[in-house]
Structure formats: structure tokens, C-alpha cells
């Protein structure tokens, strides 16, 4: 039930990508536990603005766990300690009175810091542009029910498609690998007949773009899967591996 807690916030502050960052500690007093984590940061920012300081910059938008804009590495976990939830779905009742909460940006060479806790995730768009689509134009497509798709396949594709592109997988991975993200998209389209036509091309193009952008190699630690706010399974990575190897062997 509702109560108030006080705690220390240890937050990473960094002016720009090239500048050196450091932690700053802020005291937070009497925060209601039914406040969301981002609302708590709003309160902090309100305090900072009232004190004439610059507010902490962090990405956020929908605040209902779907846009993938929010990030934050909280107490050693991307999107904080809750499982299957984004930072914006995290509530202060998860934290204890008197504790120190450490908040860091995603740390990966693929996601350079823009300011404070905001990072540049455009690399994901570049990977998508390399092949994360079905190459069709608008119009001239068959009736939606023309190709029956088994419920099982459609559900699996939906599991993969629920990726919100937040970057938690890269943030969680000690190798800075984007395999979970890439595999989710490749899987979604490889599972559906519409996407199978160019599945081989897609797997090769997206993977090579991922490598080119400097993301690391997957070593199957499963940290991505454990931290993914949408619980995307690494079975998608196995599928990507399968698709990619098959594509290369048939070259």
C-alpha cells in the first residue's frame, strides 16, 4: 500500500559524447511508492530547475511500456530490477527506504551517450534499413486471407515482433551484441510466408550491417533474454543463426 520513502539517487551526468561523465548524488525525500520511476525523475528535475540547475536528460515518451524510448540502467539492470517491464513501468514500491539507487545510461560503443542518460540508438534504424522489411510497394498485394498462416506460426512471429527496439539487449550484453534485436526482426519475417521470399537476403544484410556498426559477437550468455522488457527468447537467435548459415551455405 502507499507510503513514502527516501533514498539517494546516484546519477550519471555527462554533457556530451566526447566529454567525460561522472556520477552525481541527489537526496530524494518522501517519494510516494506509487510514483513511477520516471515520475520520480520528474520530481528530481523539478527540484533541479527550482534550484537553477539543468535537469537530468533522459529519454522517455509513451510511459506505458511500448514505444521503447525509455532506457536507464538501474541498480545493475537495464530497465531496473523488474522483469518483463520497461523503466517507465517501474514503480517506486520496488525500492527500499534508505537505499542508494544507481542510474546509468546504456553503455555500449554502438550507443554513444548524447547527454546524461540519453543515448544515440540510431544504429538500430540503420540495421532495419539494411533489410528489416518485406520489399513490397503500397498496393497490389493479395487479399489478407489469401495465404493461410497457422496460428502457431503467427503467434511465434508475434512473440518476436513484440520487440520495442529499446536497446536493453545491447545494454545487458557484456559483448555489446545486438543479436536479440536483429534475430527478433529476422525471425518475425522468416516465420511468415510473406517474409520467407527474401529471408536469406534479409538475414545476411541485417547481420552484416550489425557487424559493420561495431556491435559485438553473441556468446550465448542469455543476459539479453533475461533483461528484455518484452521477454524475447534467444530461440530467435538460434533461428537467425540457422537462417544465416543456410543462406551462406547456399551462396
Amino acid at each position: 500500500m502507499e507510503k513514502n520513502i527516501s533514498f539517494k539517487l546516484k546519477i550519471w551526468r555527462q554533457r556530451g559524447p566526447k566529454e567525460k561523465g561522472q556520477f552525481k548524488v541527489y537526496e530524494m525525500k518522501d517519494i510516494p511508492t506509487d510514483t513511477s520511476f520516471l515520475e520520480m525523475l520528474d520530481i528530481l528535475n523539478e527540484q533541479l530547475i527550482n534550484a537553477g540547475e539543468e535537469p537530468v536528460v533522459f529519454d522517455h515518451d509513451c510511459r506505458e511500456g511500448i514505444c521503447g524510448m525509455c532506457s536507464l540502467y538501474i541498480n545493475g539492470h537495464p530497465h531496473g530490477p523488474a522483469t518483463g517491464a520497461t523503466t517507465c513501468q517501474l514503480y517506486m514500491r520496488r525500492f527500499k527506504d534508505g537505499e542508494t539507487i544507481t542510474v546509468e545510461p546504456w553503455r555500449s560503443a554502438g550507443f554513444p551517450v548524447i547527454r546524461d542518460l540519453m543515448v544515440d540508438r540510431r544504429a538500430y534504424d540503420k540495421i532495419m534499413q539494411a533489410g528489416g522489411y518485406v520489399s513490397i510497394n503500397t498496393g497490389g498485394v493479395p487479399d489478407a486471407n489469401a495465404i493461410p498462416i497457422s496460428k502457431e506460426k503467427a503467434d511465434l512471429a508475434m512473440d518476436a515482433a513484440s520487440c520495442i527496439g529499446c536497446g536493453a539487449c545491447v545494454a545487458a550484453c557484456k559483448n555489446g551484441s545486438a543479436m536479440l534485436f536483429v534475430s527478433a526482426k529476422v525471425s518475425q519475417l522468416a516465420l511468415l510466408p510473406q517474409g520467407q521470399v527474401e529471408a536469406a537476403r534479409r538475414a545476411k544484410a541485417m547481420l552484416s550491417k550489425m557487424d559493420e556498426l561495431g556491435f559485438g559477437n553473441c556468446t550465448n550468455t542469455r543476459a539479453c533474454e533475461a533483461e528484455c522488457p518484452k521477454c524475447i527468447s534467444i530461440s530467435n537467435i538460434a533461428r537467425l543463426n540457422r537462417e544465416f548459415i543456410a543462406a551462406k551455405l547456399s551462396d
Binding site: Y133, V141, P142, A144, A157, M158, L192
Partner: peptide, 9 residues
């Protein structure tokens, strides 16, 4: 039709 063709599950 368009969305199904794009691979919307």
C-alpha cells in the same frame, strides 16, 4: 491486405 503483406502478425 497491405499490412498482412508487410508481415504484420
Amino acid at each position: 491486405d497491405q499490412c498482412v503483406a508487410q508481415g504484420v502478425p
